[in-house]
Amino acid sequence: MKLDKRILALGCLAAVLVLVSGWLWMSRTQGEDFAQCRKSVMAGGLENLGGPFTLTNQDGQRVTDAQVLDQPSLIYFGYTYCPDVCPLDTARNAEAVSLLAERNIKTKPVFISVDPTRDTPEVLKEFAQSISPDLVGLTGSTEEIDAVSKSWRNYYKLNNQDNPEDYLVDHMTNTFLYLPGRGTVEFYGRDVQPEQMADSVACFVNAAS
Score class of each variant (00 low, 15 high):
204 F>S: 00
6 R>H: 08
158 L>Q: 13
197 M>D: 12
39 K>C: 00
108 K>M: 08
80 T>S: 06
4 D>T: 01
57 N>I: 03
162 D>S: 13
180 P>T: 10
207 A>Q: 14
65 D>E: 13
1 M>D: 13
203 C>F: 09
205 V>K: 01
59 D>E: 13
7 I>P: 03
138 L>V: 07
89 D>Q: 09
32 E>T: 06
185 V>H: 00
60 G>H: 04
97 V>G: 03
132 S>F: 00
72 P>M: 08
171 H>A: 01
104 N>M: 03
73 S>R: 12
39 K>R: 15
165 E>L: 11
208 A>Q: 08
68 V>C: 11
161 Q>E: 11
52 P>T: 05
15 A>K: 01
24 L>Q: 12
174 N>A: 12
32 E>S: 12
33 D>Q: 10
58 Q>M: 09
180 P>F: 07
177 L>A: 09
10 L>H: 04
179 L>Q: 10
31 G>D: 09
20 V>M: 13
162 D>G: 01
199 D>E: 15
62 R>M: 06
10 L>W: 13
182 R>W: 14
64 T>S: 15
177 L>S: 09
69 L>K: 09
99 L>F: 10
177 L>T: 11
148 V>Y: 03
124 L>S: 05
78 G>V: 02
67 Q>R: 07
144 E>P: 08
108 K>I: 06
27 S>R: 15
197 M>P: 08
131 I>V: 15
99 L>K: 07
152 W>P: 06
80 T>M: 10
159 N>L: 14
122 E>F: 04
51 G>F: 14
145 I>C: 04
102 E>T: 10
143 E>I: 07
112 I>L: 05
115 D>T: 10
51 G>N: 07
157 K>G: 01
169 V>D: 11
55 L>E: 06
78 G>M: 02
168 L>E: 12
139 T>D: 11
109 P>Y: 00
143 E>N: 04
50 G>N: 12
9 A>N: 12
59 D>R: 11
183 G>N: 13
87 P>A: 03
44 G>F: 05
35 A>L: 02
110 V>Y: 02
176 F>M: 10
183 G>I: 12
176 F>S: 05
69 L>W: 08
72 P>T: 11
159 N>R: 11
66 A>G: 03
171 H>P: 15
189 G>W: 05
183 G>S: 07
99 L>V: 07
169 V>S: 03
89 D>P: 00
170 D>C: 05
131 I>F: 04
170 D>V: 02
197 M>H: 03
65 D>S: 10
84 D>W: 09
176 F>I: 10
86 C>R: 02
157 K>C: 00
12 C>I: 15
22 G>H: 10
144 E>Q: 15
116 P>D: 02
176 F>D: 05
194 P>I: 01
6 R>A: 06
